[in-house]
Structure formats: C-alpha cells, structure tokens
Design a protein around this nucleic acid. Structure first.
Length: 268
DNA sequence: ATGGTCGCAACGCGA
C-alpha cells in the first residue's frame, strides 16, 4: 500500500469520534494528523484508534481548547511537543517514522486563529498569531538522501488569492491579510518547504479546506478558505501522486468546519 | 454593514 498521510482539524475528537472512525475505515491513511482535539491526554479515545490498527500515537492535548494528535499504523518516535510562544498551548507535535526507505520527520501544527481584529497593537490574539509564525521559521525542511520532512496542519492562513472565495473582500479579514500571507509564504520558502497541495492542484484553481459554520448553506454559497496545508521537503515532491481535499466531509452529519486533506505518495 | 454557528463548559470565550 502506498504511503498516505491525512490531516484534519476535527473540532473535538470525542464529539466526532464516529466520523474519525468512519474516515479511517474508508480511507485507511497510514497516518492521520488531527488538530483541535479539545481533549486532555488522559481522556483521549486511544483505545478506539488502536482497535482500528492505529496503535501508534503522538498526543498533545489540553482541556477545552487546541490540542493535536498524530495517529499512525506505523511505529512513531515522538520527537518533540514544542511550546511555541511559551504559553503552554498544545499546538504542535512532531514524530519520526519510516516511509519509502527514508526516515521522515512529520510535524503536526495548529496555528492560532488570531481573533477578529487584524491589528497586533490592539488585538493580542493577532500578535500571538504573528509571533507564532515567526517562531515557526526555526522549523526547517531538513533532508538528505535518507531523510525527509513533512509539515501538515491547520495553519489558519489562506496564502493565495485562489485560496479564498473573494480575495478583495478578505484582504482585511484575519487569515488572508497581507502581513499573514506574506509572513507564511516567506517562512515556508526560507524554511525550504514546498506547498504540496499547490504542486498538485494548480494555483489558478480555487481550493478550500474550511467553510464557516455561520452560513445557512455552505455548499451553495461556497465561501471557503484553504486554511489546512501539506508541506514537504523538496525530495518528496516527485514522489507525490495525489492530494485529495475531501470536500464531501463538510456535508457529513454534525461535521467539523474543516475537511480532511489526504496526500498519497508513490512509495510504501 | 452586520450577524450568522459551533464546542466546551459554564451562562462567556475562542473559533
């Protein structure tokens, strides 16, 4: 089976456990990176995932907010649960696994949303988001002949004009302001990361992974944004076969406002 | 221009 990695902001792993179980049965990724688990580690539904073959987990959760978890069918070596901005938020976990004869370092991120007001002087949540992105510059896509890196997660920024339903109308809306989009893009490029979703789906094409709950008909209005991302070191780009955005998941019963993004590679 | 909906867990906050 070719190596497959999925990422999904689940917005409460306990509430949506049946959806995650169905997703794992139907799509069987080797690895699933979850964000916004909203679950302390001692209450994480590990047994349910173990029963489905995902016995290897890197969990970093907290009560009520944030939280990330990486579920895997392959052995994982937990590398780091890094406290970005030093305020104790559980927004990152990295783990190493073996794929395609390489040692792959996999980062799972949940970047702060940043609040409503896009002014760091008056909105501490926006200041925090910008600081978080700056600190992410130290996370680089190191690789050589035997190693590679993958960074996935809810980065809460839609960098391209085609990553939002209206570039013009969202220029002053947190997630698509120039200070965020330029910051994310420069951080990505300087870190040596490749935007794998856009390597597969041309930048001219509209692409969203999130649709607000505050819309009476998300599908008809289609006011989406691409907030979830898959980045890799350059030595994995030629091995990528497909990136699938599971738009249908937004229409499932009691859905998350984000949908899974599934990346398939050409090696085992 | 405004408000719209979720989840957690407490009647507000963060998204």
């Amino acid at each position: 089976m070719p190596f497959t990695v999925a990422t999904w902001n689940i917005n409460s792993v306990r509430l949506r456990l049946p959806l995650v179980e169905q997703f794992l049965k139907d799509y069987a990724p080797d690895v699933l990176c979850l964000q916004e688990t909203k679950c302390p580690d001692d209450l994480f539904p590990a047994a349910a995932f173990e029963a489905l073959g995902y016995g290897h987990m890197a969990i970093s959760g907290q009560k009520g907010y944030h939280g990330v978890a990486t579920l895997s069918r392959r052995p994982l070596d937990i590398v780091e649960k890094r406290d970005f901005c030093g305020i104790g938020d559980r927004r990152h976990v990295s783990a190493r696994l073996s794929a395609g004869g390489r040692s792959v370092l996999l980062h799972n991120f949940y970047v702060p949303a940043g609040g409503d007001e896009p002014d760091p002087e008056i909105n501490p949540k926006f200041r925090h988001k910008l600081d978080f992105i700056e600190e992410m510059r130290s996370v680089r896509a190191g690789f050589d002949g035997e190693s590679a890196a993958i960074l996935v997660g809810d980065l809460n920024i839609a960098p391209l004009e085609t990553d939002v339903w209206s570039h013009k109308q969202l220029l002053k809306v947190v997630s698509h302001t120039p200070i965020e989009t330029e910051g994310l893009e420069s951080m990505r490029a300087e870190g040596g990361w490749v935007d794998l979703m856009r390597a597969h789906i041309p930048p001219q094409e509209r692409l969203y992974t999130w649709w607000s709950y505050r819309n009476r008909d998300w599908a008809a209005s289609d006011r989406g944004r691409r907030l979830d991302h898959v980045w890799t070191s350059p030595n994995l780009v030629d091995d990528m076969r497909e990136v699938e955005v599971l738009r249908a998941a937004r229409g499932w019963e009691r859905p998350s406002d984000h949908v899974p993004v599934i990346t398939r590679f050409g090696f085992d």
